[in-house]
């Protein structure tokens, strides 16, 4: 799920960035530092949409660095248990398949794939229904439900299922 929230961060700025462009430098550094990161609490920071407030800088003894508390608005993406997502399959193996929804990697175990779909090894490993009408392979788009998340400091990993109503392949590249 996406959220638009306000976060705060203490930015350390090297003295060489001081000057007229200090603010720009600060913001660009913030973007560089923050966008694409992941925190367990908020999920992935997708984009910074604005700066709320830059506090007073504090000069660090000895280094000359200045610390600014920066409040910024950003869009974060955090997957939740039970959430339905659309994702792109990135890898298929006999244990299931991996899919990605933006920065989040989701694993769908073969136990969580409908029983009538079987793994077919070969050049393009895939899961296929017995009648061959539905096929999950790399680059397929699937709709899945997240049933578990594991949140590390730098990564969010989910397991999902497509063994439910209205879940499964939504766009098959091979059919197209």
């Amino acid at each position: 799920m996406f959220f638009h929230i306000v976060l705060e961060r203490n930015m350390q700025l090297h003295p060489r960035h001081f000057g007229r462009n200090l603010r720009e430098n600060l913001v660009s550094k913030l973007m560089k530092d923050v966008e694409g990161t992941c925190s367990g609490r908020h999920g992935f920071v997708v984009a910074i949409t604005g700066i709320e407030n830059i506090g007073k800088g504090l000069i660090r003894d000895g280094t000359g660095f200045v610390t600014f508390p920066v409040k910024y608005q950003c869009v974060v993406f955090r997957p939740f248990k039970g959430e339905i997502l659309e994702a792109v399959v990135t890898m298929v193996n006999k244990m299931g398949f991996f899919a990605e929804a933006g920065p989040v990697q989701i694993f769908v175990s073969n136990h969580l794939i409908p029983d009538d779909m079987e793994f077919q090894s070969g050049d393009v490993p895939n899961y296929t229904t017995s009648d061959g009408s539905v096929k999950i392979q790399k680059d397929s788009e699937v709709r899945l439900k997240i049933i578990g998340t594991r949140v590390d400091a730098t990564e969010i990993f989910c397991i999902g299922t497509i063994k439910d109503d209205f879940l499964g392949v939504i766009n098959d590249p091979s059919a197209a």
Binding site: K81, S109, L112, I147, G148, T149, R150, I159, T161
Partner: peptide, 23 residues
């Protein structure tokens, strides 16, 4: 346990492993 739980194996051959319950 329910699928999606994050668990740690505390005994048996796989002792120490952690993972998410799939089934």
């Amino acid at each position: 346990f329910e699928p999606g739980n994050h668990v740690k194996v505390v005994s048996g051959t796989q002792e120490g492993a952690t993972g998410m319950v799939v089934k």
